[in-house]
């Protein structure tokens, strides 16, 4: 079935409502703004929050990149790209530098973002206090009163149990010294990229009906105790087996033939870039 939809799928009324929520979110960094999450052609929990933000801010001249866990070619990323392209006709890209709008699930690209870019993150669980408090009314009050002992308590419990903070992803952050925010399940490795980011960061939770934001050049600090400083995943002595990059977030894989543990860039477009650069360099050399 192919029907002629409005530009960017939504009617203008819906876009207006979502844009209002976004503006409020930008005005109060880290504060979760409720919005009327729409029924989308993909299921809730599959990136509807991010998709709704993308569709309501995209313009005809935008260049879109969609990532799913660092990959440009995964099913979810491709489907979202197709939907946005079919309803807007905007240009698509896999190059981080070329994109003006990036929708991402659980990663921030390795290439530093610029002030001309917006990154939209898909959020499954926007409330960092939910594991300690089930009631929305109470968590809202806790945010209002700057009562974040619950978020700290979770980290304390992890230290008691495992001797270190054990958040694999979604390590809570203090935004602008005021709100504690769930940065969506990005690895701790990416938390530092939120701090003083040049690009606008928008976060959308479709199922939980919340939008929040980190405006450019905002202080973002990961929660950490005085005697247990914040650490990121370490990949010492490890490198990508394809492009040899270090200092990037690596996936650990097991080679099915040899049974060996190998590492590979999680950001596929970054990995491809490195390979292309190498090929170019070699071509240059052989030309001389």
């Amino acid at each position: 079935m192919k029907t002629d939809t409005h530009f960017a799928f939504f009617d203008e009324g819906s876009k207006k409502e979502i844009r209002r929520a976004i503006i409020k979110a930008v005005a109060i960094p880290g504060y979760q703004v409720p919005f009327a999450s729409r029924e989308m052609p993909i299921a809730r929990g599959w990136g509807t929050g991010g998709l709704q933000i993308t569709l309501s801010i995209i313009g005809k001249s935008d260049v879109l990149k969609v990532i799913d866990q660092g990959a440009d070619e995964s099913v979810n990323a491709v489907s979202i790209k197709k939907l946005v392209h079919d309803t807007t006709g905007v240009e698509l890209t896999e190059q981080t530098e070329e994109a003006s709008l990036i929708q991402s699930r659980h990663r921030i690209p390795e290439v530093a973002l610029t002030k001309d870019q917006i990154i939209v993150l898909q959020v499954p669980m926007p409330e960092p206090l939910r594991p300690v408090e089930a009631s929305e009314l109470k968590t809202k009050t806790m945010h209002a009163e700057n009562d974040y002992s619950g978020a700290w308590l979770m980290l304390f419990e992890q230290i008691m149990k495992y001797g270190k903070t054990a958040t694999a992803a979604d390590h809570p952050v203090y935004v602008n010294d005021r709100y504690v925010m769930a940065p969506s399940p990005i690895p701790r490795f990416d938390n530092s990229k939120l701090h003083e980011s040049e690009a606008l960061i928008l976060l959308g939770a479709g199922r939980e009906k919340k939008i929040y934001a980190v405006p450019p050049y905002t202080n973002v600090e990961s929660l950490a105790f005085d005697d247990y400083p914040f650490t990121v995943e370490a990949f010492e002595d490890k490198h990508c087996h394809i492009c040899n990059s270090t200092d990037v977030f690596l996936d650990e894989l097991i080679d099915p033939q040899t049974g060996e543990t190998i590492h590979q860039c999680n950001d596929t477009s970054f990995c491809m870039d490195q390979l292309n650069k190498k090929v170019e360099e070699e071509a240059q050399k052989s030309y001389v």
Binding site: D147, S149, W152, L153, F156, I159, F225, D226, D227, Y228
Partner: peptide, 9 residues
């Protein structure tokens, strides 16, 4: 923690 302590030890 609620009283502002941030030192695990």
């Amino acid at each position: 923690i609620a009283a502002g302590n941030k030192h695990v030890g």
